[in-house]
Amino acid sequence: MVEKMTATYRFDRLEQTLSQLNREDCLIMAGGTDIMVLHKSGRGVPLKLPKPLIFIDHLSELKQVFQNHKDIHIGACCTYSELLEHPLIPVSLKNAIKTIAAPAIRNRGTLGGNICNASPAGDTLPLLYVYNAKLLLRSVTGDRIVEISDFIQGPRRVQRYQNEILAEIILPSVLEEGAYVVFEKVGNRNADAIAKVGFAGYIRINEARIEDVRFAFGAVGPTMVRSIDIERKLVGKTIPLADADIVQVVAGFDKIIRPIDDQRSTATYRKTVALNLLRYFLSMKQYQAN
């Protein structure tokens, strides 16, 4: 019996790619670093895929980085290595990218792939949540923009229609002055390790008063954990924060962080580390804008 080969497409232009996606449900491949592992077929056997495969990693339309007023637009198919070298990419995002895998993977893996793969441990996700990142999805019928927190629905589940491609990641107002943003990743070793816990913190201060503050936790739930309610309670408070305020915020997250045990770590460890990272962030005496 001859097995049917997987159909593959590689068009020169985004437009043709979108038309094909409008005709036929395809598996979109950017760098392929998640797809190739997920569909690993073994030595000498071409991949077996559930759908036709469409390559997008070469499309120049998806590889631009540019500034529009105070926003930064990042093409979904920019590789990690490309972003590390780009002057517009914020230092905090570069620091997160440096914790991802190793050079060879960073030469292939894309920011769009990390988002659409929607792994609870995706290392760029906590930061993208605290940046309030918006995603531009493009199809033959036009563009639509969604919040990253609405797009990602669960592990490997995103709210994308069959005919859409994630075209751009938008970091709104990221060039506004005065925010201090950090990403912390706890893994088994420094390089090439999947996160056991990820934490991103964002804080903007004006004359010792908190104007805006955001937190997101990775790898401690099916999607990133963020709470607008808890964040709002801190707005207007002065730095350094009173112990009672810190205790209250930590207690708030203690209730909503519900990690799992898996081969990488235990639920108890994950929660303890997540709350320690938060407590450390809240206890800082000053926050230097970066």
Binding site: G32, T33, M36, F55, A101, A102, I105, R108
Partner: peptide, 27 residues
């Protein structure tokens, strides 16, 4: 390993280090 973890399959693609086990030749 066949899944990007070990680097034994490293080659240069357009002068960039990449894992050949993760690359379908269509790309």
């Amino acid at each position: 390993c066949g899944e990007g973890e070990c680097g034994a399959c490293s080659v240069f693609v357009n002068n960039l280090l990449q894992n050949s086990c993760l690359i379908p030749i269509g790309s």
